[in-house]
Simulated scan of single mutants.
Amino acid sequence: MTHRPLIIAPSILASDFARFGEEVRAIDEAGADWIHIDVMDGHFVPNISFGPEVVRAIRPLSAKFFDVHLMIAPADPYLEAFAKAGADLISVHAEAGPHLHRSLQAIRGLGRRAGVALNPATPASAIENVLDDVDLVLVMTVNPGFGGQAFIAPMLEKIARIKAMIGDRPIDIEIDGGVTKDNAAACARAGGNVLVAGSAAFKGGAAAYAGNIAAIRDAAAQARGELV
């Protein structure tokens, strides 16, 4: 079985905001493959987090891939701002607007990779007709809006369905919500290759970040047959 590359993407939503720039540098140096940036608007989800100016401010602090997850509605008016701020990939929610194809094509038109995200209650079938327009499918394994929630285990079946739907297309499957070293193997076996880790990556302070990331990576890699 061939695999998409295994990617660990710590979510800076779980970082210490009083030391934000230092935290971005620290998680980069600790072995993060991508930097996951959760954007919340207080409307689509019950919280407010970052805007494009925050992305712009931290862009010089890391050369890593910036994975921007827009939990906002509408998303289309802000795509260009996030692209210009330094996003490498922009994911929009299937539930956030009526014209999903248009949103995804707009992201690609800005020269960025395009992702589509699904809330836990949204079936995999909702993205069946846009798979040729995406580079990544993001599966929420908690209800979006807050960090620190428990992983919703039945989402593993949904991940497997999406993996089957994708077939041999070069599309990454990202798992976002409650990912830890204890469930990373199950996520990988189901078909996920991009693992977003918030609390599990940032717990224990900067000295612990490398070990946290390595534990998640090793559990997933072993499930993929890459570590014995």
Results as ranks from 00 to 15, higher is better:
Glu53Gly: 02
Ala73Trp: 00
Leu79Thr: 13
Pro52Ser: 15
Ala63Met: 05
Asp38Arg: 11
Ala63Thr: 14
Asp38Trp: 02
Ala83Ser: 15
Leu79Glu: 08
Leu61Gly: 14
Ala94Arg: 15
Ile72Gly: 00
Met40Gln: 03
Phe44Trp: 00
Ala73Glu: 10
Pro46Ser: 08
His99Ala: 08
Asp41His: 09
Ser49Ile: 08
Pro77Tyr: 10
Ala96Glu: 02
Ala81Lys: 15
Ser49Pro: 05
Asp41Lys: 07
Phe44Met: 00
His69Ile: 11
His101Lys: 14
Pro52Leu: 01
His43Glu: 06
Asp41Leu: 05
Asp41Asn: 04
Phe82Asn: 09
Val39Lys: 01
Asp67His: 14
Gly86Tyr: 06
Ser91Ile: 07
Leu79Tyr: 13
Leu100Ala: 09
Asp67Lys: 11
Pro46Glu: 04
Asp38Met: 10
Leu70His: 14
Val68Met: 05
Glu80Asp: 13
Leu110Lys: 06
Pro74Asp: 12
Ala96Leu: 10
Gly109His: 06
Ser91His: 11
Phe44Ser: 00
Ser49Ala: 06
Ser103Arg: 15
Ala85Gln: 12
Pro60Ile: 00
Lys64Pro: 07
Ser62Ile: 07
Asp41Gln: 07
Asp88Val: 03
Asn47Lys: 14
Pro52Arg: 09
Glu95Gln: 08
Asp76Val: 14
Phe66Ile: 10
His36Cys: 07
Asn47Trp: 05
His36Ile: 09
Val55Tyr: 03
Leu79Met: 12
Asp41Arg: 08
Val68Phe: 03
Ile58Arg: 04
Arg59Phe: 01
Met71Lys: 07
Ile72Asn: 03
Pro46Thr: 02
Gly86Lys: 14
Tyr78Glu: 07
Leu110Met: 12
Lys84His: 07
Pro98Arg: 14
Val68Ser: 07
His36Lys: 07
His69Lys: 09
Met40Thr: 08
Ala83Arg: 13
Ser91Gly: 14
Leu61Pro: 13
Pro46Gly: 06
Asp67Gly: 11
Phe50Met: 12
Phe82Lys: 13
His93Ala: 11
Asn47Phe: 04
Val92Leu: 09
Val92Cys: 03
Arg56Tyr: 02
Pro74Leu: 15
Asn47Val: 10
Glu53Asn: 13
Phe44Asn: 00
His99Arg: 15
His36Tyr: 03
Asp38Lys: 12
Leu110Cys: 07
Met40Pro: 00
Ala85Trp: 04
Ala81Tyr: 01
Asp67Asn: 15
Pro98Ile: 10
Arg56Phe: 02
His43Trp: 02
Ser91Lys: 05
Leu89Tyr: 01
Val92Ala: 04
His93Val: 05
Lys84Thr: 08
Tyr78Arg: 14
Pro74Arg: 15
Gln105Trp: 06
Asp88Gly: 01
Leu110Asn: 05
Ala96Cys: 10
Leu79Asp: 05
Arg59Asp: 02
Ala81Asp: 01
Gly86Ser: 13
Glu95Val: 00
Ala106Leu: 13
Met40Glu: 00
Pro46Tyr: 03
Ala96Gly: 12
Ala83Gly: 15
